[in-house]
Design a protein around this nucleic acid. Structure first.
Lengths: 155, 155
DNA sequence: TTATAATATGTCGCATACGATATAATCGCT
DNA sequence: AGCGATTATATCGTATGCGACATATTATAA
């Protein structure tokens, strides 16, 4: 019959496992799944945690500057930053010189999180099962990939 | 004063650019941004496209089997598959032998998409600016990373 | 056999991401 | 000075992902 239960047509030479995009896609989910339960102790989501890493390094950024570092736009960041503000980890305040800009400042509470984050970062680092050298190389390679993809179509 | 405009405290040795998780996170977004406008012609989102790649390779999978290949759960897949069904790219039907299972079958319309997808895949492949060898190596490395992260905590 | 456990899928709430669009502030040009 | 263009942020709608939970079907065991 035409619609037997077991007809699995091998239709193409395209196998998902050979797609770089899928490797990145699924690895990103895997990171999320490792981080998420660890970050619950800090009341942070994984994207929020990444934003906090930036702020721990450089405080008092505008929303746009933060977005530049995260490769995210303000329509994504604004709601996230409002949640971080509700948690009292950051403050959002209009810049006095240019009222269009909103500056993000860590609160004391937000700054204190950094110590607890270190343990989590170490845990995840060990979960990757990579040597420092290999990890650094992957960071460079994947960063270059991101750059190529972002520059795609640019002059 | 305590709250000058320009106080940017260099607070830590943690730089976002050195995080493997962020490299993966931002590369994933970059892939999404390259694919998304190309996929609009097919009325597919990027995750939908990835699911279709699996179905083009192996038809008549259950929701669970598809999820196993995508590393996604049914609570994510069910709504997506309903949208693909609404687009008439797939059909969802309960398995006669085991009524718990839902089998996903490509429609003719869905099968036809594959030809158009090839061009898009080629475009993105060239946007990565990687040689075949390098790309294959990255796929292996990132796949191994995903595997390590997924196995984290298992016996 | 029949109550209970296990399995497969689905629903709901929440938090991203992003395109399209809105709003407000500043800039640039005359 | 003033007005149109630009810039910075925010709002809205849609589509993921996932935890928690609900439902239905099948398997298992007393």
């Amino acid at each position: 019959m035409a619609s037997s239960q077991n007809d699995r047509s091998e239709g193409s030479g395209l196998k998902l496992d050979e797609f770089l995009c899928f490797a990145v896609y699924s690895a990103n989910h895997a990171f999320n799944r490792v981080y998420q339960p660890l970050l619950q102790k800090l009341n942070l989501t994984y994207p929020q945690f990444i934003a906090m890493i930036v702020l721990w390094t450089e405080d008092n950024l505008t929303v746009g500057e933060l977005g530049g570092k995260l490769f995210l736009q303000t329509n994504t960041l604004t709601p996230m930053l409002k949640r971080l503000e509700a948690l009292e980890y950051i403050e959002r305040r209009r810049d006095g010189t240019d009222e269009r800009q909103v500056r993000i400042k860590l609160t004391t509470k937000g700054r204190k999180l950094q110590a607890k984050a270190s343990d989590i970062i170490c845990s995840v680092r060990s979960a990757t099962e990579l040597e420092d050298k290999q990890m650094a190389q992957m960071v460079r390679d994947i960063g270059a990939l991101r750059h190529s993809l972002a520059g795609h179509g640019r002059s």
